[in-house]
Design a protein around this nucleic acid. Structure first.
Length: 423
RNA sequence: GGAGAAAUGGCAGAGUGGUCGAAUGCGGCAGUCUUGAAAACUGUUGAGGGUCACACCUCCGGGGGUUCGAAUCCCUCUUUCUCCGCCA
């Protein structure tokens, strides 16, 4: 959620930057400013009324003390009048504040000036590419065929137990999953991230804190009996660690990592592009998350990108990095880099990581602040990224490492899997 | 699930109708002393709104009520703790 004083002071900039998302925010921004003015006007009026009645109450107390009950009773009548007025003003204030907030929830984050213009994923800017695309043998298969051939993932069994999009990993497939999780966590902790195990269900306040609620509840599984949501990403419980927290400046930056399953309803997404592991209702992901000083968040973003790079280099997978254009940028993000691994057998790029700087957008909702050098509470910046999402990394490994003899396990993973080939 | 107790500032903890945004201790910050540090001493130190700055307003778990006036009384919800039950 954007900060109203920021909007007030940077109206034109906000409108221009939001235009990168291909929206004309002029009306919304003007409304924010006028709603806020109105809100402050009512607030002032209410404050004055309350001040008056506070003063009268004090006076009444003094009159009783000095035994002048009659005078006190006269004043009492006055206060009942003020009470009514303040009740009315208070209702008006609440209405106006709600109106303002409802509007603010609808306004996405202001894109960084580096965000390229564009309307779709085809407009994303490729900023880096590395890794040779392997030449596969005759008859190379997409990963869903390989999964069947080597009996390591059973999509139909998952369908029987839960439904489409809930695969069952078996044997070496299950072990490879576990190996990847352990490997990612080890890489992240070696880079200074503290490992956390987080709840897989969150309450409403947490969903709200990271921006899934309101409006996007349809994307999450909802346990109505207890009003809990299955997490769509570790970002939700991870970032909400810091809800209503004031950190000391010396505690920054905070770097945490965690493995969680992720649950996404992904309503209405069907077709060839969602085959196999490409899109699932339940998948595993290792997330990295940072809370940063506002002056250092972009440096941190670069650091996170560099970190994810090292993992892909070690896995020896062909990948590229995209800077997302305004049309593809997430609601809460100011700048996002996507990592994509090349799926040779499908001949297409698969998104495996998304690393974003949210600046103060999440922190404002979360009330995540730090005490700055002036001793004032200031909103911190939050960032997060996948390091990494499992299914498409797995797809990339299966497809790019396939040989006629079987699927070779990348060298760095062999210590974790305990085997060198799936055959 | 049953019974009881509790929820106050970064933490601990006092405060049962007005002078309480709130004692005290710890912690934090600044200073004195010191070559430096520690100790000691002195001062300072909750948040949000509002204002050029003051004034002023709101907040003692959440919501509602009683009262001229509520941290304090009443109702309700939530959470935590203790005991019992169940249990990986």
């Amino acid at each position: 959620m954007l900060q109203v004083p920021f909007i007030r002071e940077n109206k034109d900039l906000v409108i221009t930057r939001l235009a990168k998302r291909n929206i004309d925010a002029t009306q919304m921004i003007n409304d924010v400013i006028s709603f806020d003015e109105e809100r402050r006007r009512i607030q002032t009026e209410l404050d004055n009324t309350l001040a008056e009645s506070n003063a009268l109450s004090k006076e009444i107390g003094n009159l009783y003390k000095s035994g002048e009950a009659q005078k006190a009773n006269i004043l009492k009548e006055k206060t009942s009048q003020l009470k009514e007025t303040s009740k009315e003003l208070n209702d008006a204030l609440n209405t106006k504040s709600d109106e303002l907030n409802q509007l603010l929830y609808k306004i996405p984050n202001v894109p960084n000036e580096m965000v390229p213009n564009g309307t779709a994923d085809t407009d994303n800017l490729e900023v880096f590419k590395e890794g040779a695309i392997p030449v596969l043998h005759e008859g190379a298969l997409p990963h869903w065929e390989l999964a069947k051939k080597y009996d390591i993932i059973d999509f139909e069994l998952g369908n029987k137990i839960a439904g489409a999009g809930f695969p069952v990993y078996k044997g070496k497939g299950a072990r490879l999953q576990r190996a990847l999780i352990a490997y990612f966590l080890d890489k992240n902790t070696a880079a200074g991230y503290t490992e956390y195990q987080l709840p897989h269900l969150v309450n409403e306040a947490s969903g709200f804190g990271t921006g899934q609620l309101p409006d996007k509840e349809g994307q999450m599984y909802h346990v109505t009996e207890d009003n809990l949501y299955l997490i769509p990403t570790a970002e939700v419980p991870g970032t909400n660690i810091f809800r209503d927290v004031v950190l000391n400046e010396s505690e920054l930056p905070v770097s945490i990592t965690g493995y969680t399953p992720c649950f996404r309803r992904e309503a209405g997404s069907y077709g060839a592009h969602v085959r196999g592991l490409n899109r699932l209702h339940q998948f595993d992901k290792v997330e990295i998350l940072r809370v940063e000083h506002p002056t250092k968040s972009y440096e941190a973003l670069d650091g996170m990108v560099a970190h994810v790079k090292t993992i892909l280099q070690e896995l020896k997978l062909p990948y590229r990095i995209l800077r997302l254009c305004g049309g593809d940028l997430g609601f809460t993000s100011a700048l996002t880099y996507d990592f994509e691994v090349f799926s040779t057998a499908q001949d297409r790029w698969l998104e495996i990581s998304s690393v974003s700087n949210f600046e103060t957008f999440q922190a404002n909702r979360l009330k995540l602040r730090f005490k700055n050098s002036d001793g004032k509470n200031e909103l911190a910046h939050t960032l997060n990224g996948s390091s990494l999402a499992l299914p498409r990394v797995l797809a990339g490994i299966l497809e790019n490492y396939q040989t006629e003899a079987g699927i070779v396990i990348p060298e760095v993973l062999q210590a974790y899997t305990g085997f060198k080939i799936i055959d």
